[in-house]
Amino acid sequence: DQPSCGQCGASLRVRSLVHALSLALFGRSMAIVDFPVGWPMKGHGLSEPGPHVDGLAARMDFSNSPPLPESVPGLLNRELEQAKPGSLDFLIVDDVLEQFAPPRQSAFNQAVGLLRPGAVLIFALPAEMREPEPGEGADRFRQKTENEEGPGDLPCNGAPGASLTMPEGVEAQIRRHLAAAGMQPPRLHKEAVPEFGIPSHHGSAQVWAARRPLASPQDPAEEGGDVFFDQHSRYASLGRILCELAEAEATVLDVGS
């Protein structure tokens, strides 16, 4: 993905990830520089280093592991072996999941396992998916498989290198993987955000957001959900509604109970 911000070089894919993250955390799309400093959330990224990584790390407990260019199954294990299961409020996975050979369910399970109840998984996949040309890209990873993703060769994404992508029906597969990992139905972000330079149909990435459900208080087998996170989501929505209803320059004094 080409840098497209003339100031910091952020690509369209990165801006789309930030948009999805901001919506998930705050209920509206904000620039990272407008995220509150000291926000009590813990996040991790599997992303190339860049200004978005630095910006998030300056505002909350955020760490990042660059994805390896020749990623193979086990990458999440290696990158995140230090991470505590169920410890993250959010995980950003930037163009990594598609590089796993089938069965990819394990990659989703590993990623979800790092999330606490109510936390979000934000991930980008290449938007362009097609069958590989003979001798192209993914040949050395090509393998026959009889798992749920069907037999046959793996497609590649047409990008330079050896990235693998999902076969046809990728959206349905992603939804199935996420559901099997226990996630709520995901959101595939297709909307335009013109103020941040994000067109509605762009060719660089699919950005998804999925949330791990809060534990039910009726289920003693589940660890309790994080009350703060839930309350924040509610107050963020309430605050947004108040802001939309209020006259310009009005001040909201309190959104407490």
């Binding site: 497209s4 911000c5 100031q7 910091c8 904000m30 103020e195």
Partner: peptide, 16 residues
């Protein structure tokens, strides 16, 4: 050329 504000650095930029 399309002007926009970058949501990473917060600066005005162009050409999405």
């Amino acid at each position: 050329r399309h002007e926009f504000r970058c949501n990473v650095c917060g600066e005005a930029s162009g050409s999405a």
